[in-house]
């Protein structure tokens, strides 16, 4: 497969996932804050911007964190490269550039989603966002479902998996990181703390699943354990990284042997993935609770970024494409 095509599939997938994750975080916040006292409202919106890591950019455009400013920023502010609309646009641009690689159904779904977010009545969304949020979520999930159902599970599909799960692992880490910071300011067992835990789980679509594991208490330790280490919940970090590992292995076994990449970047990315997975598998959750959570997640996020970089180097056009300058020429001057 063309390196550029692999890269586009990977990013198409990451951007769709990113759009869905941001939308879900917004949804949960709208719900959660309905039960919040007025003075806590401001505090309730700021963490969303922290999750995407865009505080500085946000501050350039808005004086304060409100439902309206944060939603606007996360949904469609033109300066925000990670706004939902920007993500879906870029996912579609990537899909368009590999139109012949994906199925017609995938293309139709991503188009529909694109025209949905482009054409939506923005004022209406800010007044009552829920329908729009669920449309975006449904659009993304339908796209992912159609992808699995209509595309051969070969090399192209594996790059899509890689993108989706790496993005998801990263977002779960960030949600944990931010929500945990708030949680650490609250006393365990208070209603506020419980609400935060519920919001954290819902941000990862994990509330119902967590509840079904009847043995688990709604406390910081078990929740963190579930979101980090569940081997069966599809948004848990370990689950996602395992899927990445699976996809990366499939890709490299298809390409190895005749692989002419001399620097062994493919092997490198596999090693980092493997190491990160083992680290999680042998993790004692008690070791990373409370104040230790943030440093641990920082470390984990760094690993995830490194995996992304190594995949880029192994399979994509790693070199930056520069214009081709013409060489100098010598004057004939004797």
């Amino acid at each position: 497969m063309l390196s550029r095509v692999a890269e586009s599939l990977y990013w198409m997938s990451r951007y769709i996932e990113r759009a869905e994750d941001i939308t879900r975080i917004l949804t949960v916040n709208f719900h959660a804050l309905l039960d919040t006292r007025l003075e806590d409202l401001k505090r309730g919106w700021q963490p969303l911007i922290e999750i995407t890591g865009d505080q500085a950019l946000f501050a350039q455009h808005y004086p304060e964190y409100t439902a309206q400013t944060v939603s606007e920023f996360l949904l469609w502010h033109p300066a925000n490269p990670n706004a939902v609309i920007a993500c879906i646009t870029r996912a579609r641009e990537n899909a368009r550039s590999v139109r012949e690689q994906i199925s017609s159904e995938m293309w139709e779904h991503i188009n529909r989603l694109y025209f949905l977010v482009r054409g939506v009545n923005r004022a209406g969304v800010l007044r009552g966002p829920h329908e729009f949020f669920s449309q975006v979520r449904d659009g993304s999930q339908a796209f992912q479902g159609v992808t699995d159902a209509t595309m051969p599970h070969g090399e192209a599909w594996q790059f899509i998996q890689l993108g989706k799960f790496l993005e998801r692992a990263e977002k779960t880490c960030r949600i944990l990181d931010v929500k945990y910071a708030t949680l650490n300011t609250l006393r365990e067992g208070t209603p506020e703390a419980s609400l935060q835990l519920i919001a954290m789980l819902k941000s990862c679509s994990a509330f119902e699943a967590f509840r079904k594991e009847s043995a688990l208490q709604l406390q910081a330790g078990p929740v963190a354990h579930y979101l980090l280490l569940s081997p069966i919940f599809p948004r848990a970090v370990l689950f996602c990284l395992k899927r990445c590992q699976h996809a990366a292995t499939a890709i490299s076994s298809a390409t190895l042997g005749e692989n002419s990449r001399p620097d062994g970047a493919a092997a490198l990315s596999l090693r980092t993935l493997g190491r990160t997975c083992s680290e999680l598998e042998y993790l004692d959750i008690e070791d990373v609770l409370d104040a230790r959570m943030h440093p641990f997640l920082t470390h984990l996020l760094r690993q995830i970024n490194q995996i992304g970089d190594e995949i880029t180097r192994a399979y994509f056009n790693a070199q930056i494409i520069q214009p081709s300058p013409r060489r100098q020429q010598a004057q004939q001057q004797q």
Partner: peptide, 14 residues
């Protein structure tokens, strides 16, 4: 006598 192109961001000395 020579003509060429390359990719990269560098200062060239001939």
């Amino acid at each position: 006598p020579t003509r060429g192109v390359f990719k990269g961001n560098a200062k060239e000395t001939l």
